[in-house]
């Protein structure tokens, strides 16, 4: 991977997007096991229906992990300083998580060069599911 340089990026630049496979029950079961989040609403249809949901739905933190991959695909993880997000919509089965990031600010802090990114995870219909920002240090 060629290192992203502070001098070579500009406010308004988009970082390479990350498009995942459609969310399936299998995806959610794996994530439940791997994350340790065993909330049955994500894996047990009977439970989901009792909670008046039409079906199980994705863990918010699964899409958050995809946003994490969006960042670590772009720069080595140790350059990430801050990463925050709001869960703005429920990711349903069959949704295709699509993560995008845009540089909104270049600045210096704590003696290093940093950029602020606006990040977003949407589905294939452009409906926003997660929105947030990240601060990344660049050489």
């Amino acid at each position: 991977m060629t290192q992203v340089q502070y001098s070579s990026v500009n406010v308004g630049d988009e970082i390479p997007l990350l498009k995942e496979k459609p969310v399936s029950r299998f995806t959610l079961t794996l994530y439940a096991g791997a994350s340790g989040d065993h909330n049955p609403i994500h894996i047990d249809l009977d439970f989901a229906r009792k909670a008046r949901m039409p079906d199980v739905f994705a863990h918010g933190m699964l899409s958050a992990a995809y946003l994490g991959r969006l960042l670590t695909n772009w720069v080595p993880q140790r350059q990430i300083r801050n990463f925050s997000m709001r869960f703005t919509g429920i990711t349903q089965l069959g949704n295709v998580p699509t993560c995008t990031g845009k540089i909104v600010e270049k600045f210096e802090a704590d003696g290093e060069k940093r950029v602020r990114l606006q990040i977003r995870c949407s589905n294939q219909y452009g409906e926003e599911k997660l929105a947030g920002e990240a601060i990344v240090a660049l050489p």
Partner: peptide, 12 residues
């Protein structure tokens, strides 16, 4: 566009 059977179709 999309399948009417998708869980989020009706709302969309």
């Amino acid at each position: 566009v999309g399948s009417v059977t998708a869980v989020d179709f009706a709302d969309r």
